[in-house]
Design a protein around this nucleic acid. Structure first.
Length: 653
DNA sequence: GGCTCGGAT
DNA sequence: AGACATCCGAGCC
């Protein structure tokens, strides 16, 4: 096994299980389906076979497989040298601490509209009842429950859906309608918790602790009443989950869907039992990639985390120990508040079309996109300094090119369009199927205009609304209620608001960075990394993502875990002095590094960083030698601890 | 600080 | 035949 080779072939059988699942799409295990998933996957694969889309998926799957195999190699190396017992002991200590701090006092509810878009369409066209139908042409936005039984799900290509369900009826989406209903529904929820947090247009989090106290009503009864109210006033059904924190509540809302609710007992034992057999994929933040990553080390259910706590602790950077241990315990944020999402970081628009190679036609598309983005920016009051062009080739590979200015992008569409051209023209000729423009380094124009004094305040007031502008519509009215039509992509946005919460009180250090090791970075470096120049240049080189196999593997962000990164940013950083922090930490006490066995006067955090350092050496032995000989690894931490490892590995290879 | 890429919903 | 949109942040120079 091992072998310095580093490129030890993962193995063929690429078509297997994991890839088929990938092809099947993301929302698979998330929502309840029916029928034989294997058969469904077969039909999907058959319909896809040979398409460019399929080839691209295969390529990505292969990259991931390679990345995982490299991580496993590192894992093997680490486990071989480390003191497993100590690592487990360390994890156990953290678990005990987390358990001691568990908060079961708040009654959190996650409400989720059942097949929202589909339900609304059904409302407006009763003849759809009982028919399997889907909302959205081209790509399914939402499938009715009857359609789901056939394996149709959101995100799926329409033609694939039709293969799975020949009698499928496909209707168009009516965003303004969804938006209006969404607002109406959220207002109902707010009667129970004025500070509820809308998570997208069809779901939200509430803390009904207070409501229940004041109305002397039990949680389940309260939620049932709320759901009935929604149904009475809108004729739409909603499912709900009641639990001690947001993550649990969200998972619970799926339990008795549609039109049902589920409450988890508010005891530590019940929560842990609930987590034990829960698929890791059900955890918000764990998507296809992280699921595979975790599965590769034997973690399939949340209960499995415990058995692998040593690996997770030793390779925190890759797997996110803190996140996983909390997940194992079923602990997450129980803070529910509206907006609070800081300002948005970017605003953009993109459009997919039938692949074209003609320069004039491409520029036409670019102009359309520029105009659309321009309208959005104008109506929502944003401008920015950096413009990023995104394009997708007919092979489905995606590239971006950006340019920054010292000035704010003018709101005249000519500005965006010309910048877009500047970025795109040098790339041509290409055959494209998508063009997008995005502006970052934003500035909120309304801050100056409107409430300039307490700019922040403005934000709080309509925080959650502020996201996702789009859709011009927006007529007069100032920031008041412009609940605009969030044309929403349904999932997306909302989660955004919700997710950060899960990591709230954390302070973990960032967790990982996946392939910190290898992933040589050649490409990107010169901006010259042009994609396939010219259509013909068939195979070979090109594309930044494709150069030599491993290259593109890019350090994907972190695993599930990742999110903790934000928390980390808050404190820590201070690149050059990471080690000072560590050593100067509080509750200092002797701790032994499970890798190099050195005893350190530091706290858990410090120990953690030290372990990271040990791992960063790539060659564990090196660290051991160092510690064994020179017992005081003085200043072991490379400036910028984490990146240190990366760089090294990067070049090396 | 600029730029690119991949993740997640 | 046919396969989304939007946003975020990490990593690298």
């Amino acid at each position: 096994m091992q072998i310095p080779g580093e490129k030890n072939a993962p193995e063929p059988s690429q078509d297997s299980a994991s890839f088929l699942r990938r092809l099947a799409g993301a929302s698979v295990t998330k929502a309840g389906l029916a029928k034989d998933q294997t058969e469904i996957n077969r039909i999907i694969a058959e319909a896809s076979k040979g398409s460019k889309f399929y080839e691209n998926e295969k390529r990505k799957d292969k990259e991931l497989t390679g990345r995982i195999s490299r991580i496993l190699k590192t894992r093997d190396e680490v486990l071989r040298e480390a003191d497993i017992a100590k690592a487990e002991h360390y994890a156990d200590a953290l678990i005990a601490k987390m358990e001691a701090e568990r908060d079961l006092t708040q009654i959190i509810v996650h409400v989720d509209m059942d097949a929202f878009y589909a339900s609304v369409e059904l409302l407006d066209d009763p003849t759809l009842i009982d028919k399997p139908f889907a909302v959205g042409h081209g790509v399914v936005s939402t499938a009715s429950y009857a359609a789901r039984k056939h394996g149709v799900r959101s995100g799926m290509a329409e033609f694939v859906a039709r293969k799975l369900c020949p009698q499928l009826v496909v209707v168009s989406a009516h965003y303004p309608r969804y938006s209006a209903l969404s607002k109406q529904i959220m207002d109902i929820f707010r009667r129970y918790d004025p500070t509820m947090c809308a998570a997208g247009c069809d779901e939200g989090y509430l803390n009904i602790t207070r409501y229940c106290e004041e109305h002397l009503i039990a949680a389940e009864e309260c939620v049932r009443e709320m759901r009935e109210t929604v149904h009475r006033e809108t004729k739409l059904t909603v499912s709900a989950g009641i639990a001690p924190n947001k993550m649990l509540a969200k998972i619970c809302s799926d339990k008795n869907k549609p039109n049902g609710q589920f409450m988890l007992e508010f005891t530590s034992a019940a929560v842990k039992a609930f987590m034990h057999d829960l698929s890791i994929r059900k955890i918000p933040g764990v998507g296809r990639v992280n699921e595979r990553l975790l599965e590769s080390i034997g973690i399939k259910t949340c209960g499995d985390i415990y058995a692998h706590r040593a690996t997770v602790a030793l390779m925190d950077r890759y797997f996110g120990m803190h996140f996983l241990l909390q997940t194992y315990l079923g602990i997450a944020s129980n803070v529910v508040e509206p907006g609070q999402r800081e300002e948005r970081k970017s605003i953009g628009a993109e459009r997919t079309f039938h692949a074209i190679g003609d320069k004039e036609l491409i520029l036409e598309k670019l102009e359309e996109v520029a105009a659309e983005l321009n309208d959005d920016m104008e109506s929502s009051g944003w401008t920015g300094k950096t413009v990023t062009l995104k394009y997708k080739l007919d092979t489905y590979q995606v590239f971006t090119r950006a340019k920054s200015f010292n000035r704010w992008i003018s709101t005249k569409k000519e500005d965006l369009f010309s910048v877009g051209k500047e970025l795109l023209l040098p790339e041509l000729p290409l055959r494209l199927r998508l063009i997008g423009l995005r502006v970052t380094k934003l500035k909120d124009l309304r801050d100056d205009a409107d409430s300039k004094p307490g700019s922040i305040k403005r934000f709080f007031e309509k925080a959650n609304v502020a996201s996702s502008p789009r859709k011009k519509r927006k007529v007069s009215h100032a920031p008041e209620e412009d609940e605009e039509l969030e044309e929403v992509r349904l999932t997306q946005d909302g989660f955004e608001d919700a997710m950060p919460g899960f990591y709230e009180n954390e302070e973990v250090e960032q967790s990982l960075d996946t392939d910190g090791l290898d992933h040589y970075t050649h490409q990107g470096k010169h901006k010259g990394s042009r994609p396939p120049t010219s259509a013909p240049s068939s195979s070979a080189a090109r594309s930044p993502g494709t150069l030599t196999g491993p290259s593109s593997s890019r350090a994907t962000s972190h695993p599930p875990i990742v999110a903790t990164g934000s928390a980390k940013r808050k404190r820590t950083h201070s690149p050059g002095s990471g080690e000072d922090n560590v050593m100067g930490a509080d509750n200092v006490r002797g701790q032994t590094c499970p890798i190099c066995s050195k005893v350190l006067e530091t706290d858990n955090r410090g120990l953690n960083e030290h372990i990271d350092f040990c791992l960063s050496k790539g060659a564990i032995r090196e660290a051991q030698v160092m510690s064994n000989n020179a017992k005081s690894l003085k200043q072991p931490f490379p400036a910028k601890g984490k990146s240190g490892s990366k760089m090294k590995n990067t070049k090396k290879k």
